[in-house]
Simulated assay, not measured.
Amino acid sequence: MTRRPEDKPSRALRGRAGRMKGGRGSGRASTGAVRLWGRHAVEAALLNPERNHRKLWATQEGVASLDGDLPANFPVEYASAADLGRLVARDAPHQGLVLDCDALEAVFIEDVLSGEPDRPLLVLDQVTDPHNVGAILRSAAAFGAAAIITQDRHAPPESGTLAKSASGALETVPWIRVVNLARAMELIAEAGYWRIGLDGKGTATLAEALPAGPVALVLGAEGEGMRHNITQHCDAIARLPITSAIESLNVSNAAAIALYAIATRS
């Protein structure tokens, strides 16, 4: 299936405007409670008006590290660093801040596709490691990606580990979960995006495959790579020009390099 390419919290911890609201995406909405930790992840969640915050567990030093004041009557329970350590994963670097909140609501893929086509999309095919997805979210925020898109069943849930790796980007980059990733890629094509799958066996380099218009970058899981059906839904398969000294790159490193290439294309 091919197509032609087209040539700081306020002084009162306010939220970030502009994230799409409400409704369910093509996949299920995130539900339930989430526990976040670490200064960047917690502070970004406190900034996000679309987060329903339940309770902040903190040390005095942790609260003092926040770039702004907590709202009046915000539910805070002060505790020692050792006590906070019992609330999170073993040896997790909580930095004196642990936040209980609700998961973010899902968003519609159509909302992103009708948005800013000059910003790339990231499609992740069965990338399940929360550290990798978090790092990809961080790179997506750094290079202005419009969203990441994953299949609902084969992606990690929101978690403290993922949010810590994302360093706040979980709150600012829309994450769309879909039931059928191939169908989502069809919608992406219909919206005018050129879908480039990254694979070390690609005959063209990413620079050679990049069009002038909207781009959706597709990355598969480490080891297995993209599934055959997802590869068939790409308009081009490209590789990063790495040397023979190493077989492949971590998927989050590959995403960062590819996003940089898209951001700096001429």
Rank of each mutant, 00 (worst) to 15 (best):
125 D>E: 13
164 K>V: 13
190 E>V: 01
161 T>W: 07
108 F>G: 10
26 S>M: 03
133 V>P: 03
137 L>I: 08
239 R>W: 04
143 F>K: 04
211 P>E: 10
155 A>D: 03
67 D>K: 12
30 S>C: 15
164 K>M: 11
82 A>H: 01
249 L>C: 14
156 P>N: 10
32 G>Q: 08
35 R>T: 13
15 G>N: 01
187 L>R: 09
70 L>N: 02
193 Y>N: 07
18 G>M: 03
91 D>L: 08
181 L>W: 05
159 S>Y: 03
85 G>C: 12
246 I>A: 10
177 R>W: 00
189 A>D: 13
242 I>T: 14
60 Q>S: 13
171 E>T: 07
236 A>R: 02
49 P>Q: 05
80 S>W: 01
77 E>K: 14
80 S>I: 07
106 A>V: 04
87 L>P: 08
133 V>I: 02
63 V>F: 00
6 E>I: 05
58 A>V: 15
259 L>K: 01
156 P>M: 11
107 V>T: 14
235 D>T: 02
185 M>S: 10
47 L>F: 03
214 P>C: 10
63 V>G: 02
29 A>G: 06
108 F>Q: 12
208 E>C: 14
92 A>I: 10
141 A>M: 01
250 N>Q: 14
263 A>I: 06
5 P>F: 09
247 E>D: 15
41 A>T: 08
201 K>P: 02
163 A>K: 04
90 R>E: 11
52 N>W: 03
192 G>H: 06
94 H>Y: 05
222 E>F: 06
30 S>I: 12
247 E>M: 06
247 E>W: 06
263 A>Y: 02
169 A>M: 09
10 S>P: 03
44 A>V: 12
148 I>G: 02
88 V>F: 09
51 R>V: 15
46 L>M: 08
21 K>P: 11
191 A>C: 09
139 S>N: 01
194 W>N: 03
7 D>K: 00
2 T>Q: 11
231 T>F: 02
203 T>A: 03
33 A>V: 15
2 T>K: 09
95 Q>S: 15
142 A>Q: 02
64 A>T: 09
18 G>H: 08
134 G>D: 01
104 L>V: 00
29 A>N: 06
94 H>R: 07
85 G>D: 13
8 K>D: 11
171 E>P: 08
152 D>G: 07
59 T>L: 04
15 G>W: 00
251 V>E: 00
249 L>M: 14
180 N>K: 09
233 H>N: 14
